[in-house]
Design a binder for these strands. Structure first.
Lengths: 199, 199
DNA sequence: TGGGAAACAGCACGGGCCGTGTCGTGCTGT
DNA sequence: ACAGCACGACACGGCCCGTGCTGTTTCCCA
């Protein structure tokens, strides 16, 4: 009541994002048109276009407003346990229904639209990877990891196979699989070959 | 002349696929409409629809007709060298311009269209991963890898980070990076932590 | 407390592409 | 010569795009 300026504007913004999620869940991102979202939200098309320049960026906002909090890295002192916590949380949220398919669609859209790709990187991927790297760095400082451990590569080996399963082979992301990846990175693949390690 | 039945049909099929590649390269997959492809190919829309049910599957055929040969796994007796060969060949073809962006678009479309995802898996991903696994298995039989080496996980750790860079962070795929991944899998990440390897 | 600015809903428009239908033509094989 | 089929050309209703326009509601500030 006494709240003023952006109260109705913010309300409409939320209603539009909510309507976008509803439409996407019911009919898929392919059917997510500005017209459909506006109708669902009980809003004029202008009101949508005033806020987002394309359906891709609207969809990005809608998906990222889900629960991207709760994906921060804890620090219990055990790097592997902490990574397992954040990896299971993230995959449970973004790798399964109901939001998994939408996150999949979002990454798919990023492959077609450079603006979506840039915004997704800047607003979600980069902070998340930076957070992982910071946590790994802390573990190294605490002596849990060797000084020459390749932190960047470790982060990419922890993330890559999960995205590979989500996007390419479309297999389910189980906790057991996360444990296998963690084991590979922090206990080694034990190849025991004659490979001397030279590139 | 004396060749008959499918000669004109096959000619048109090739012209349509070629036109699809041209349009996609010039204007991006987003602008790839059946009408535009038909016009570019000098062909009626019916002729396109008679062959492909959607632009996604047409695009899949067009991209996969590029050079998917030449991606078979050699066997020189050195598993790491052979993997490096096929990985560099694959990323040079599908991870760089001019075909990299199109392969990216294709995977993006697979996130929206289950038929494209299934066809891409069946016709490219699955054969490719099966080939990699067969080569790894041969190396294990020859004693280059320990009997308990996790072949499936190794394949996914070799592929995952490359797709992560291609699709998520959109960094370039260099040969040096491939070497880092190979080194990690076949020489270990050397964490030297107190982690005991239990999941 | 009034008045001007801004945001809004509703409607309409031209345009692009969809997927399908129809018609007439040229090529294919018998 | 003839029947069949793939084809090119054109037209169609429909969906959604992005953008105008009008009149109304809401907000801010004087």
């Amino acid at each position: 009541m006494t709240d003023h300026q952006p109260v109705r504007a913010a309300d409409r913004t939320e209603r539009i994002k909510g309507a976008a999620l509803e439409v996407a869940r019911e009919a898929g991102f392919a059917k997510l048109s500005i017209e459909a979202v506006a109708a669902r939200a009980g809003v004029s098309k202008h009101t949508v276009y005033r806020r987002w320049p394309s359906r891709g960026l609207l969809f990005l906002d809608a998906v990222l407003s889900l629960n991207t909090a709760g994906l921060g890295h804890p620090d219990t002192g055990d790097i592997v346990a902490d990574l397992r916590t954040v990896m299971t949380t993230a995959t449970d949220l973004l790798g399964r229904p109901p939001w998994g398919p939408l996150y999949q669609d979002l990454i798919g859209e990023a492959q077609h639209d450079p603006e979506v790709a840039a915004a997704l990187n800047q607003r979600f991927i980069a902070p998340q990877t930076a957070d992982t790297l910071a946590r790994l760095k802390r573990a190294m400082d605490q002596g849990q990891l060797a000084p020459d451990f390749d932190l960047d590569l470790a982060m990419e080996i922890l993330s890559g196979p999960l995205y590979f399963r989500l996007l390419i082979t479309q297999q389910p992301l189980t906790h057991a699989y996360i444990d296998r990846v963690l084991h590979a990175v922090f206990a080694g693949m034990s190849p025991r070959s004659q490979y001397d390690g030279r590139p």
